[in-house]
Design a binder for these strands. Sequence first.
RNA 1: GGAGAGAUGGCAGAGUGGUCGAAUGCGCACGCUUGGAAAGCGUGUAAGGUGUUAAAGCCUUCGAGGGUUCGAAUCCCUCUCUCUCCGCCA
Length: 424
Amino acid sequence: MLDLKRLKKDSKALANNLKKRGFSLDLQEWDKLESKRKSLQSDTENMQADLNQISKEIGISKKEGTDSSKLEKKASEITSKIKSQSKILSSILLDIDTFALSIPNLIDDDVPEGKDESDNIELRNSGKVRKFDFTPKDHLELGSNLSGIDMESGVKITGSRFAVFKSDLARLQRSLINFMIDIHVQEHSYTEVYVPFIVNEESLLGTGQLPKFEEDLFKIEGKENFYLTSTAEVPVTNLFRNEVIDSKELPKKYVCHTPCFRSEAGSYGLDTKGIMRLHQFEKVELVQATESKDSDNALEELTGHAEEILKRLELPYRVVSLCSGDIGFSAAKTYDLEVWIPSQEKYREISSCSNFRDFQARRMKARWKNPSSNKTEILNTLNGSGLALSRTVLALMENFQEKDGSISIPDSLRTYFGSSKITL
RNA sequence: GGAGAGAUGGCAGAGUGGUCGAAUGCGCACGCUUGGAAAGCGUGUAAGGUGUUAAAGCCUUCGAGGGUUCGAAUCCCUCUCUCUCCGCCA
């Protein structure tokens, strides 16, 4: 959520910033709501102050044993006025809340301007794209030859976009989880957490998936409004919700492995083959909370942590800065890591690292105590995949395939995986 | 699932209808003290809104929502969560 104070003072500047991502802020609507609120609120607060004063006088009068019936009559009149007035006020406050919750985050100045994906800017790349002396197969063909990826069973058990991993490929994914978490814990000093995969509405409001993007989520039928997590970002970032963190503990760095469930509404034609885009996939997620002055550096650091995994796995990748039109609702700035996919001869997203600044933290009242001012301030939050696992499996299969359909395992992973090759 | 207890500030913990936004302790900040530290002493220390150059002031908030009352942390109702005992279970 944006700072409502800034919206009150500086709405035009905010509107200009939001325009860059193609969001038009309805300034007329805002002015209308805000001026209504202002007059109603100050009216009711004045009445409330009167009532408090009179109530106090009644209290004193009762103690002294003098007659207070006139005061009580007056008070009772004010009370009923307040009741009707505050009903209107609370409905306007609700409107303002709804309005504010559906405004996306402001975009950092150094985010490239653009309309869509095609305007994203490549910042750097790493690793050599392999030249094959045979025609490389795609991961699905490799996987079914190895009896390691079974899409049919996924469909049978659940439906489309669900997959079954078997044998060495199931083990490959499992070894990658440990590989990634160990590096982040031991070398990048993250704290490992295990969290619920089912989350409530408040958590999703906090990170910004709700109220606008409910159609991307799997909702659980029942008395309570529960959802399956679409990313570990939701449960992990919400660890900070309604907390005041001691400055000595900052930055807070968490790493977490979870499954992710996405309905993928609106992506019917995309990546229909194989495990590129599934309703359920695994991810190792990095989450940080920092003071506001530190989040720029933290984004670079966190992105580097995710890149380190790709480097150790010897996967060719590039880093892309998302343009203003492609950046997500809650993010102020995002770097995507894209890994080379030989069968598509394209780089594809395998990690997305974002700085949300105070946008999520304000929604979830995640704060820290600034010892220099002795005030509580809103935290900055960041996250990034480190990495998405099914796409890592996919990338390893395709990039490390041999002519005979076997797959070699990069050196750094061998102790985790237990052998150097997956063979037919 | 059955029975009972509870939810108060960063934390712990008083407070059962009226100057209670809330005693006290811890923590934290500042000062005194010290060669320096610890201890000790003193002062300060909730959040949000409104307002202001800044402040003062005013409003709201004691798990959430509703109700009673001139007035609610305190009484009533509903819900959520936590703890203890019993049952069940991985």
